[in-house]
Write a protein that binds this DNA or RNA. Structure first.
Lengths: 211, 211
DNA sequence: AAGGGATTGTGAAAAATCGCACAAGGTAGT
DNA sequence: ACTACCTTGTGCGATTTTTCACAATCCCTT
């Protein structure tokens, strides 16, 4: 495959381009888009758009722009979104619950992003056994088994900060490769796992600076 | 005030340092922390920690480290977290609802971060009038009035993508200065408003690359 | 009071990222 | 076919960010 070493800054912008392209595709499939328009709608300079697209091997036509559909497909390919991606959620409290419903809602009716929520886990006996939109909440004890059985390699972590590191280690053992961490703590990534920390409070505090 | 022009990369790391410092403070108030330990727990190199802290005018003692309490207070000061920060949420669907409960829960029992949720807004008549933990959901029509009445300048945006830009413009008129945007769209910031976009799907797609 | 050990603070180098500017290439209209 | 116009692709320089390395500083023990 033609995936060279693309720097992470670029990878981070690709989903944003993709989001814009999906919108454009709905309005005018078969059309083209310029780096100016794509940049405008993505919050990025045109030059940067071109640099990014060039880095992933996408080509446009001088004088015209980039073919929307082709570019979209290219991005989906790079981001592995042309195959089904199964995701599990660990921790079904306030946040985990909301995220679950959000994902189900967003990817049920919408385009075929192949992002599929397949399992929910919690360690609280009062929650285990409940259902969210037909997906049962499993006990965390059976995590490793379920992970290989259902074949998901990506996890959303929404447990309390104190438990997060322990859970990450379990994930590692179970062969999980990517984790989106909502727990308010920086996790040390075990070998072979990619972690992306995200914390609402951190974002709010960041913004607070600019008040 | 001694706030020079601190680059945003640094500002973004400050809340993370602060989060770590709060944890350290609980365990051992009055103690000091080295740039090594602080870096370790924040996912940042020691050198970078020192550069960052130096940039905001925080000083440590050679051979010892930084006084935890003093550093924490310094960070809170820089991030405006030593005054009360009132926040409103616009859009109380799945996500907005969850965020509301998350904030209330996290900042009620916890430390005095002075981050206070003071208002909820929606335009759906079926939702308007409901209550979440004692906070009524107001009609979006009265937004501007409520904003100046309650004095909040920061907003969490959790409306559908189609409405987001319109709402941001209303925010601008109402004197809002900072917005945490959960809508899956890049918003053009009106003059005087700082926007931070955050999108669960974008994060998931970013991670998907590394599978 | 003096020496040892640890850690800060920061210039200066290195690396990463970004943006400019323009030649090359393509289209559409005459 | 030719011209006018538009947009890509990219070398290169500017800027930002990170890392290195070490002198200066301070505590603690003896």
């Amino acid at each position: 495959m033609g995936k060279q070493n693309i720097p992470d800054v670029i990878i981070r912008r690709l989903p944003i381009y993709l989001r814009v392209l999906e919108g454009l595709y709905e309005d005018s499939p078969g059309d083209v888009v310029s780096s100016f328009e794509l940049g405008e709608k993505s919050g990025v300079t045109p030059a940067q758009v071109r640099k990014d697209l060039s880095a992933i091997g996408a080509v446009g036509k001088p004088g015209l722009g980039y073919n929307i559909e082709a570019l979209r497909d290219k991005l989906k390919n790079i981001l592995n979104l042309d195959k089904e991606i199964r995701v599990g959620i660990i921790g079904v409290g306030n946040l985990g619950h909301a995220v679950a419903r959000y994902i189900i809602q967003r990817y049920r009716t919408e385009r075929d992003y192949h992002l599929k929520l397949v399992a929910l886990f919690d360690s609280n006996p009062e929650i285990v056994g409940q259902c969210i939109n037909g997906i049962a909440i499993d006990d965390m004890k059976g995590f490793s088994g379920k992970a290989s059985e259902l074949g998901f390699r990506m996890v959303i972590l929404a447990v309390p900060a104190e438990e997060a590191q322990t859970v990450i280690n379990q994930c590692s053992t179970a062969g999980i490769e990517a984790v989106l961490n909502f727990a308010p703590i920086h996790l040390r990534a075990p070998r072979g796992i990619r972690i992306h920390d995200t914390d609402l409070s951190v974002d709010l505090m960041h913004l607070a600076y600019y008040l």
